[in-house]
């Protein structure tokens, strides 16, 4: 379990371009802000979905949360401790497959528990999580021998076997076909309800967020600011076509400047 507090988070990169082009708002050498004073708070065990247009700094925020990147100013506290480096307490699930392609499913899952002393117990635990994501009999397969959805599930098993406090997912459904997406949605929500872990997920898909999240955040503009920060207390399974959820859906679509009625 993990409660997260993001305080005055700012991230800026130096502009690497040497010549100013026409219409370029940035001066060479100047810092370009991607996150501007972001303040957010998530409770223990929440399923959080962060929405926003591409390039708005959502992924950067996740990378800072995971300890892969550092903030320019401000900080992120997890259970009151400031994040300074990666730890296996929060596991990152990557946009494209983060499985190591030269390792089998078994070896990938083993990565997180490689230091367990008792070999039998270790094997049992690896098997348990592989079974949980329904990849029994695929233990000795390499990632390239699996479909996109199976790869994503193998990565989930690898993440969960270390019993992390939190999963950080960066557009985990990218590149999956529609049916696989729908199934993965359901699986992630079930997993969340079953094991009660905090999940922070970045997505492009407004419907993903409305169906899955306990808490949604909409980010926008460059540099990114928080445009909407709301808890969703609706029971699951949810119908996003009617009532309050439908209204919220319209609001979010409007906020992101798009319409689903074409």
């Amino acid at each position: 379990m993990a409660s997260i507090k993001i305080e005055n988070l700012v991230k800026a990169y130096p502009n690497r371009r040497h010549h100013r082009r026409k219409g370029d708002p940035y001066v060479p050498g100047q810092m370009i802000k991607v996150l501007d004073d972001v303040n957010l708070e998530f409770a223990d065990g929440e399923m959080v979905c962060i929405l926003g247009p591409s390039g708005c700094g959502k992924s950067t925020m996740l990378k800072i949360l995971a300890g892969f990147d550092t903030a320019t100013s401000g900080r992120i506290l997890v259970d009151g401790r400031e994040v300074t480096e990666p730890t296996s307490d929060y596991i990152f699930v990557f946009q494209q497959s983060g499985l190591l392609p030269w390792m089998t499913v078994w070896q990938n899952v083993e990565l997180g528990v490689r230091h367990m002393q008792d070999e039998e117990e270790k094997a049992a635990q690896i098997q348990e999580y592989i079974d949980m994501v329904e990849l029994s009999n695929f233990e000795q397969h390499f990632p390239h021998q699996l479909s996109g959805g199976m790869q994503r599930r193998a990565e989930l098993a690898r993440a969960l076997v270390v019993n992390p406090d939190m999963l950080i997912m960066d557009e985990p459904f990218t590149g999956l076909d529609f049916l696989t997406r729908m199934k993965m949605r359901e699986e992630v929500v079930n997993m969340h309800e079953f094991i009660g872990k905090s999940i922070l997920m970045v997505t492009h898909d407004i419907d993903d967020a409305l169906v899955m999240a306990d808490h949604i955040v909409v980010m926008g503009d460059t540099p990114a600011r928080v445009k909407l920060d709301r808890k969703l207390t609706f029971d699951r399974p949810r119908d996003i076509g009617t009532g309050e959820l439908a209204e919220l859906r319209d609001e979010v679509y409007f906020m992101l400047g798009v319409s689903y009625v074409v």
Binding site: P86, M103, L111
Partner: peptide
């Protein structure tokens, strides 16, 4: 670079990173 992030996330030592990644 994702592979190095995986390595950091699962706290692989420098030696382990060289051998396994």
């Amino acid at each position: 670079p994702i592979y190095f992030q995986v390595s950091a996330n699962f706290c692989l030592s420098r030696k382990e990173t060289n051998l396994r990644i």
